[in-house]
Computed example of a mutant assay.
Amino acid sequence: MSTIFSRIISGEIPCHKIAENEQFLAFLDVMPLVEGHVLVVPKQEIDYIFDLSPDQLGGIMQFAQTVAPAIRKAIPCKRIGVAVIGLEVPHAHVHLVPMNTANDLNFTQAKLQVSQESLAKTAELIRSFL
């Protein structure tokens, strides 16, 4: 059965795309910790981040490295936090989270409720800095 991320990658489920190449896709989290929370996923459906090949693991971080500066320019923050949790969706993914305090990367806190219109504007703003 395809994961929700595979369904997003295939276009079956829409997303607010930030960047894409042949191997990876970056898109806004629809239930973000903070504004500008981006998910980076491999297009190949692999459950666990450390089951990625060495090239894929390095590649996902290199791809994230191209997206993070655009997030930082679009969303006022001190840093872009990086997290790999992997418990909610059985598809390897990296969270890129704008941070001003360590609590901004606290996955136990309540998620933001953000309108599709607001997500679209945030995605457009981030893309403008790529």
Rank of each mutant, 00 (worst) to 15 (best):
L33V: 07
E22S: 14
I4S: 12
S118A: 14
V30Y: 02
K17S: 07
M31K: 15
L33K: 04
G59D: 12
I46L: 08
S118G: 01
T66N: 12
D51R: 09
V41Q: 06
I13C: 07
V97M: 03
I4R: 06
M99L: 07
D47G: 14
F27Q: 08
P32Q: 09
G86H: 04
F129M: 08
L28V: 12
L52V: 07
A74Q: 11
E20H: 09
E117H: 05
I49E: 03
A120K: 08
F27N: 08
I9K: 01
T122S: 12
A92W: 03
E20M: 08
K78S: 15
M99W: 00
N21K: 06
S6I: 03
Q23V: 02
F5L: 11
C15E: 06
S53G: 11
P14L: 03
K73F: 04
P14R: 05
I126F: 01
M1H: 12
M1F: 04
I49C: 05
P69T: 12
K17L: 09
G81C: 05
L28Y: 07
A102M: 07
L130A: 07
V34P: 02
L130V: 02
F27C: 09
E117Q: 13
G11A: 11
F50C: 13
V82R: 01
M31N: 15
K43E: 12
P98A: 10
A19N: 08
I60E: 09
E45T: 13
Q56I: 03
L96E: 10
F107V: 10
D55E: 15
P54Q: 11
C77A: 15
I60S: 10
F50R: 12
L125E: 13
S10N: 13
I9M: 03
L125P: 01
A70N: 10
T122M: 13
Q44I: 13
H91Q: 05
H16V: 07
E124R: 09
L130E: 09
R7Y: 00
V38C: 12
P90V: 04
